[in-house]
């Protein structure tokens, strides 16, 4: 007969190996973290805003079966996304789904439908043109498509601002500035695509870019920072 201590050790450790967390738990945690992060450091917010809805598309983990998603309405299905962007995973799909649910609550039915329509232009473009890390090289997109995408980006930015609890960039900036801002966001993504950086894994730093792209990249980033600060000031004034 085994001693009680050994039996205890064996039984507990045996059972411990069988107790497994559900994959959804990670999704829940990561969503909470990104919320805490948004609250904690406002300067980082803009980056997040650009990334939250779109780049969250691409965080690697193992796939698993789950119920049907809101996100299905936009992408067709997870399988469909996966065919196009190799690094996309179920988890990122879930995260988008969660963000969309939040959008539904925050925006109200009618606004949400508008938002979804515009967003689908952007997600379709992602499926059609993005590289395996989910970034689009806009230089390769046909001009008439490009016009459509830019228009959608200009329309959707105020929704992103709202979802991130920021004042609307469209309202704060002059029309020229606003257009320049959207162009900066596009350039930012374009250069990420052209540099072939795995934007899920590495921090995006200018050192990773080929030299000839660095200047354009820094210009776009500086302007994004400028808008960021302006939004921040506007928050402070209103408080």
């Amino acid at each position: 007969m085994m001693s009680l201590e050994n039996r205890l050790r064996e039984t507990l450790q045996d059972k411990g190996e069988k107790v497994l967390p559900k994959p959804e738990l990670k999704t829940k945690v990561m969503i909470e973290i990104s919320r805490a992060h948004e609250k904690g450091s406002r300067r980082m917010k803009k980056r997040l805003l650009v990334s939250v809805l779109i780049a969250l598309l691409i965080i690697p983990t193992s796939a698993f079966a789950y119920q049907t998603f809101l996100a299905d309405e936009l992408y067709g299905s997870f399988e469909n996304v996966k065919k196009h962007i190799t690094t996309v995973t179920m988890e990122s799909f879930l995260l988008i789904n969660a963000k969309l649910s939040q959008a539904k609550g925050d925006l109200g039915k009618e606004k949400y439908d508008q938002f979804k329509d515009i967003l689908s232009v952007i997600t379709n473009a992602k499926l059609e043109y993005s590289n395996k890390y989910g970034n689009i090289d806009y230089d390769q997109v046909p001009p008439e498509e490009m016009l459509k995408i830019k228009k959608a980006k200009m329309e959707i930015q105020p929704y992103f601002d709202k979802l991130n609890g920021q004042p609307s960039s469209q309202e704060i900036l002059t029309p020229e500035e606003y257009e320049l801002y959207i162009e900066s966001l596009i350039t930012y993504e374009k250069i990420k695509a052209q540099s072939e950086i795995d934007t899920n894994k590495s921090m995006i730093t200018v050192e990773l870019m080929p030299e000839e792209l660095q200047e354009e990249f820094l210009k776009a980033r500086d302007f994004m920072d400028y808008v960021n600060q302006k939004q921040q000031q506007s928050v402070n004034i209103n408080q």
């Binding site: 738990l25 990670k26 945690v29 990561m30 973290i33 992060h37 450091s41 965080i59 899920n200």
Partner: peptide, 20 residues
């Protein structure tokens, strides 16, 4: 420094112990 993917990795490395 703001990389949430890194936190996802920390989670992966520790979750089994914490969870059980």
């Amino acid at each position: 420094s703001g990389n949430s993917q890194a936190y996802a990795e920390l989670y992966d490395k520790t979750i089994q112990d914490v969870f059980k």
